[in-house]
C-alpha cells in the first residue's frame, strides 16, 4: 500500500474548522441550557402553612434544620420538591436506539480507519 499523504490545510480552512467545532459545541450543548430547555422532572407537592409536623420532620431533624437557619416555610420548597420517576417508554426506546446507533457507527467507522493505519504501518513499502 502506498503511503497516504494528507493535503496541507490552508490557514483559512483551519480557522473554518475551528469555527465549525465551536458552533457544534454552542448549538448542541450551550444553546439548550441558555434557552432553559434542560429542565428536570421534579414536582412541588405544596402544603399550605407548613409546620415541621406537616413536613414529617422528627425533633432531631428539626434541630438540625434550625441550626442551619431554616424555618418550616423556607424548608418547605426543599422537602416537598419531589422526583417523578415515570418512564416514558417511547423516549427511552428512541434514546436507546440513538445511543446504540452512535456506538455502532463509532466502532465500525473506527475499524475501517484503523485498517488503513495498520496497513500503512505494517505493510507499506
Amino acid at each position: 500500500m502506498a503511503k497516504y499523504n494528507p493535503p496541507d490545510q490552508p490557514i483559512v480552512m483551519q480557522l473554518f474548522d475551528i469555527a465549525c467545532l465551536v458552533a457544534a459545541i454552542f448549538l448542541a450543548l450551550w444553546f439548550p441550557l441558555y434557552m432553559g430547555w434542560a429542565g428536570i422532572s421534579k414536582n412541588l407537592e405544596k402544603i399550605d402553612n407548613p409546620t415541621w409536623d406537616a413536613l414529617k420532620q422528627n425533633p432531631t431533624m428539626v434541630a438540625q434544620w434550625e441550626k442551619l437557619g431554616f424555618t418550616p416555610e423556607t424548608a418547605h420548597a426543599i422537602i416537598q420538591n419531589k422526583w417523578v420517576y415515570s418512564i416514558d417508554w417511547t423516549q427511552l426506546t428512541i434514546m436507546t436506539i440513538v445511543l446504540l446507533g452512535y456506538f455502532i457507527f463509532l466502532f465500525m467507522a473506527s475499524d475501517r480507519e484503523y485498517r488503513d493505519v495498520i496497513e500503512e504501518k505494517f505493510n507499506s513499502k
Binding site: 448542541a28 434542560a38 429542565g39 428536570i40 422526583w83
Partner: peptide, 21 residues
C-alpha cells in the same frame, strides 16, 4: 435518563454530529 433526558439527548446529538464531521 431519569430526570435529565434533555442533557443526555443534547450530548449524544453533539457526539453524533462531530463524529460524522
Amino acid at each position: 435518563f431519569l430526570g435529565y433526558g434533555v442533557q443526555l439527548t443534547a450530548m449524544v446529538v453533539f457526539y453524533v454530529v462531530v463524529s460524522v464531521w
